[in-house]
Computed example of a mutant assay.
Amino acid sequence: MSLQSHSGVSRRWKHFHAALELAVQRSAHEWKFEDFAECFPQYVKEDKDGAMQTFTQVADYIENTTKRDLEKLFGEYDLQNNIDILDKIVSEAKARKASGDIGPNVWTENLQPRSTVCGRTIPILEAQAERLRESLAKLEAENLAFIAELDDKDRQVNDLTARYTGIMGKIDETREAWKQVPMTTIQEWAAQTAETLTPTLRS
């Protein structure tokens, strides 16, 4: 994979593009196989061909990923077009200087370089800040929803705990009350129950 370069571009962009692509290639392949072997000696010893293939794939992946990220960055800042504009400005200035047609100084009086830089960078920074604020607002909304869900679950757990405690309390009360019933009373209940059920069973 190579960095995309469109036709009809300036010489300055071509030089910049070629130098950057060379730098990416060198950076991705600067790590030699010997370095890889030192990190994974057992793997290299057992399967040198496979290790070599893995090393090559990793280097290619680093190179391709770096180039994709750079392409995305170029598009975000319209880098090629801006460099082409710079090249055109420089070329026109050189042509005017060579012809002796310097022209009037178009620099605005009392305009500080800091103001010029701020005029260019502040809109970009403001756009980035706005994106960060939107991301933060989204995270805060998700966090509030999550907290609300946790609160609801907590209320449900507390409700179930209270109901369980109440039921167990009634069971304990019933058990204690049953313990207080005299054995004679229990025997009388048993006899009465038997007498009540006997006619039913006979029929």
Rank of each mutant, 00 (worst) to 15 (best):
residue 104 P to N: 14
residue 173 E to R: 11
residue 165 T to P: 01
residue 91 S to N: 02
residue 162 A to H: 08
residue 134 E to P: 00
residue 44 V to F: 06
residue 52 M to W: 12
residue 61 Y to E: 06
residue 98 A to Y: 00
residue 173 E to Y: 14
residue 176 E to C: 04
residue 160 L to Q: 05
residue 48 K to W: 05
residue 11 R to C: 00
residue 170 K to M: 06
residue 184 T to C: 05
residue 49 D to W: 12
residue 95 A to W: 12
residue 88 K to E: 11
residue 167 I to Y: 14
residue 133 R to C: 06
residue 119 G to L: 03
residue 108 T to G: 02
residue 13 W to K: 03
residue 38 E to T: 14
residue 54 T to H: 02
residue 51 A to H: 04
residue 7 S to H: 05
residue 69 D to G: 01
residue 124 I to E: 06
residue 200 T to G: 06
residue 3 L to F: 04
residue 87 D to Q: 06
residue 152 D to K: 09
residue 151 D to L: 09
residue 1 M to V: 05
residue 194 A to P: 05
residue 7 S to E: 12
residue 100 G to Q: 10
residue 157 V to M: 10
residue 23 A to S: 07
residue 184 T to D: 15
residue 166 G to V: 13
residue 95 A to E: 11
residue 62 I to F: 04
residue 137 A to W: 00
residue 94 K to Y: 10
residue 82 N to K: 12
residue 91 S to F: 02
residue 40 F to S: 01
residue 177 A to Y: 02
residue 51 A to L: 08
residue 159 D to W: 02
residue 200 T to I: 13
residue 21 E to Q: 12
residue 56 T to M: 13
residue 82 N to V: 02
residue 117 V to H: 03
residue 8 G to S: 06
residue 153 K to D: 13
residue 81 N to Y: 01
residue 111 L to P: 07
residue 23 A to C: 07
residue 40 F to W: 10
residue 94 K to Q: 08
residue 91 S to H: 13
residue 32 K to L: 15
residue 93 A to I: 00
residue 8 G to M: 11
residue 182 P to E: 08
residue 158 N to K: 09
residue 23 A to Q: 10
residue 2 S to K: 14
residue 125 L to Y: 09
residue 10 S to Y: 04
residue 72 K to L: 09
residue 198 T to E: 13
residue 133 R to M: 09
residue 1 M to I: 15
residue 153 K to E: 15
residue 180 Q to R: 14
residue 174 T to G: 01
residue 1 M to D: 10
residue 92 E to K: 06
residue 181 V to L: 14
residue 156 Q to G: 13
residue 66 T to R: 03
residue 29 H to L: 11
residue 163 R to E: 15
residue 79 L to W: 01
residue 148 A to Y: 13
residue 41 P to R: 07
residue 195 E to D: 09
residue 56 T to N: 04
residue 126 E to K: 15
residue 179 K to Q: 15
residue 56 T to L: 11
residue 119 G to E: 07
residue 18 A to P: 00
residue 199 P to A: 09
residue 172 D to R: 00
residue 70 L to W: 07
residue 113 P to L: 05
residue 22 L to Q: 08
residue 102 I to N: 05
residue 106 V to T: 10
residue 36 F to M: 00
residue 89 I to K: 12
residue 63 E to L: 01
residue 42 Q to M: 08
residue 122 I to Y: 11
residue 65 T to N: 08
residue 203 S to A: 10
residue 20 L to R: 03
residue 12 R to M: 13
residue 25 Q to K: 11
residue 106 V to W: 01
residue 15 H to F: 07
residue 11 R to D: 12
residue 89 I to L: 06
residue 131 R to P: 00
residue 147 I to V: 14
residue 56 T to F: 11
residue 115 S to V: 04
residue 186 I to Q: 06
residue 147 I to W: 02
residue 33 F to D: 06
residue 181 V to F: 12
residue 37 A to Q: 07
residue 177 A to C: 08
residue 122 I to H: 07
residue 102 I to K: 06
residue 49 D to I: 04
residue 123 P to R: 11
residue 104 P to H: 12
residue 147 I to S: 05
residue 189 W to N: 09
residue 96 R to S: 03
residue 32 K to S: 13
residue 121 T to C: 09
residue 144 L to H: 05
residue 105 N to M: 08
residue 199 P to R: 11
residue 67 K to M: 09
residue 180 Q to N: 15
residue 65 T to G: 00
residue 55 F to M: 05
residue 6 H to N: 14
residue 11 R to H: 12
residue 5 S to F: 04
residue 126 E to P: 05
residue 94 K to R: 07
residue 159 D to S: 14
residue 31 W to M: 12
residue 168 M to Q: 14
residue 161 T to Y: 00
residue 97 K to L: 00
residue 62 I to N: 05
